[in-house]
């Protein structure tokens, strides 16, 4: 889902930055209120965890691998705002420390994966968790990949419409929605399955660990 720099127009990333900045400020305040003294180390740990989860290859039958992100797992285990901040920090580290992924894509990715992904997962968990934990967790993981992929596909696919020169040639991402929707969303419906499994198993393991530590 990583978009490199140079494919997103300023007409897109500037407003997205403004929205993201507002949400980051609010999230920082919320998270601080909920957790007080332990907030910062906990946020750092969530960030490192999410970073490394994106590195772990999850094998698919047939020899290919996909990379999950742990968005659903983080949101369900530690709350939507915490997950949003952790994912945003991962993206910022990747862009500004490791040179991987772009700074202009950061606000869009943060809003898509961090914000929409986390809160979609949380909504699924809150709505269905009491009825069937496993299904709720799986759906939380799947949604946390599928919805952001849809958003990123939309953000990319509208670039030719909003950023083109006088003759109609695209200035940034050159393909429209007819291309981006299937090309970006369809593979991520599959990646979402791995993310769903990660949410189910990861949540169980975390709950067991926490009860042992408590």
């Amino acid at each position: 889902m990583h978009i490199p720099d140079g494919f997103i127009s300023p007409q897109t990333y500037l407003p997205a930055s403004a929205v993201a900045a507002g949400l980051w400020t609010y999230a920082a305040r919320r998270v601080k209120r909920d957790l007080d003294a332990d907030t910062l180390p906990f946020l750092a740990a969530c960030t490192a965890l999410s970073f490394v989860l994106m590195m772990v290859a999850l094998p698919l039958p047939g020899g290919t691998t996909v990379h999950a992100a742990g968005i659903g797992l983080l949101a369900v285990s530690f709350g939507g705002w915490m997950a949003f901040l952790a994912i945003s920090l991962v993206l910022a580290m990747q862009a500004l420390l490791f040179g991987d992924g772009g700074i202009t894509a950061l606000p869009i990715n943060a809003l898509a994966m961090g914000f929409i992904g986390s809160f979609a997962a949380l909504a699924a968990w809150k709505a269905l968790g009491r009825w069937n934990q496993t299904i709720a967790l799986f759906l939380a993981g799947w949604l946390s990949i599928a919805l952001p992929a849809l958003l990123v596909a939309l953000a990319l696919g509208v670039q030719p419409l909003i950023a083109h020169d006088a003759q109609g040639a695209p200035l940034f991402f050159p393909f429209g929605l007819a291309v981006t929707l299937p090309a970006v969303v369809l593979p991520h419906l599959l990646v979402g399955l791995a993310e769903g499994v990660l949410s189910v198993l990861g949540y169980r393991y975390l709950t067991r660990l926490r009860s042992r530590l408590a």
Partner: peptide, 24 residues
């Protein structure tokens, strides 16, 4: 992959606890 993921989850929980104690 599962062994690696469990290890990372456990290590990050421990790291969070330890660094909040160090901070205090």
């Amino acid at each position: 992959s599962a062994a690696a993921i469990s290890w990372f989850i456990e290590k990050s929980l421990h790291a969070a606890t330890q660094s909040s104690q160090a901070l205090r």
